[in-house]
């Protein structure tokens, strides 16, 4: 894989804002909304009669517009649609950070898309593996195959859960509490961690219920998701708030990080904080938490 993917792995991607691919007004203002990344959508947000127009808008922006620090992913149409081939042919040469592939139900779905993307990269003189692939799991079969999908190609850098289609496939309702997705979410996160890729959660569809979104976001942060998709700019702040570590956690993590630094400096193998021994996984978690905390402002006397 090239530097671009590696680079993406290290950038926070708490929120991913879906923007319809045929809305130039929203796309040009993408940075203003404050999301860590955007998902330019060629699939469900675009009517059949505008698929060609959306493809043109997205490719034109990818070639000629500066998205600043935003991670830009394009959701293409599924492999079983008539749009899939042209989506890849027009989007891959523009080198988005990643393409999100809907309806991955088997490792073979990934392998076929990967082969097609590799051909297009080669034809256009782009280094192999430049464009990452985010595999969307939105069928029961896909979730059951999560680890195999995640490891089907080194191009896969994320698994992402599609809650709407999955609950439909399971024959259940998506509820406010989301218990019907609990197992699928856990399974996707575990498979993603095992494969060394990111895990992204599905959208919260009720834009008038930010409390429900906050509760669900807290839940998926605790389950270990790297980020969550948003369908409206107002949802970004809510998702970011759910990812915010408390000041107490941050203070503790910083002390562990400092102790680890000090131990490394003086060549001590064992780290202790407040007289308690701290081992490597705890240090690793503290460093990760400190990195997340650096995205937020904290007051010294803050209490949460």
């Amino acid at each position: 894989m090239t530097g671009k993917n590696e680079n993406m792995k290290n950038r926070p991607c708490r929120s991913m804002l879906y923007i319809p691919g045929d809305s130039p007004g929203m796309i040009q203002n993408a940075e203003v909304f404050g999301a860590d990344s955007i998902l330019l959508d060629l699939e469900d947000a675009v009517a059949a009669s505008e698929k060609d127009a959306a493809r043109k808008i997205v490719s034109s922006f990818l070639r000629g517009f500066d998205f600043g620090p935003l991670i830009v992913t394009v959701r293409i149409n599924a492999a079983d649609t008539e749009y899939f081939e042209r989506d890849l042919e027009e989007i891959i040469p523009c080198r988005p950070d990643a393409v999100r592939l809907p309806k991955c139900s088997s490792p073979n779905d990934v392998k076929e898309a990967d082969a097609r993307i590799s051909e297009i990269e080669k034809k256009n003189g782009i280094p192999a593996g430049s464009v990452a692939l985010h595999a969307m799991l939105e069928t029961a079969l896909g979730v059951e195959d999560a680890f195999a999908v995640a490891t089907a190609s080194p191009r896969v850098t994320a698994l992402t859960l599609g809650g709407q289609d999955l609950t439909a496939d399971m024959g259940v309702q998506k509820t406010r509490e989301g218990w019907e997705l609990f197992y699928a979410r856990s399974r996707v996160v575990l498979a993603a961690r095992a494969a060394g890729v990111m895990a992204f959660d599905t959208v919260w569809t009720d834009i008038n219920d930010p409390d429900g979104l906050y509760q669900e976001s807290k839940q998926i942060v605790e389950l270990g998701f790297s980020g969550k998709a948003a369908i409206h700019p107002s949802q970004i702040e809510v998702i970011h708030r759910a990812y915010r570590p408390s000041y107490k956690e941050v203070r503790k993590a910083r002390r562990i990080a400092e102790a680890a630094e000090e131990a490394a400096r003086v060549g001590k193998g064992v780290i202790s904080v407040d007289g308690k021994m701290v081992d490597a996984p705890v240090v690793a978690r503290a460093l990760r938490l400190s990195a997340t905390a650096s995205l937020y402002d904290y007051e010294e006397d803050e209490e949460i």
Partner: peptide, 17 residues
Amino acid sequence: GALEVTLRARIETALER
């Protein structure tokens, strides 16, 4: 008030159609 990238995309789409 379209940006140049938008004009380009719209012109190309209309032409291809």
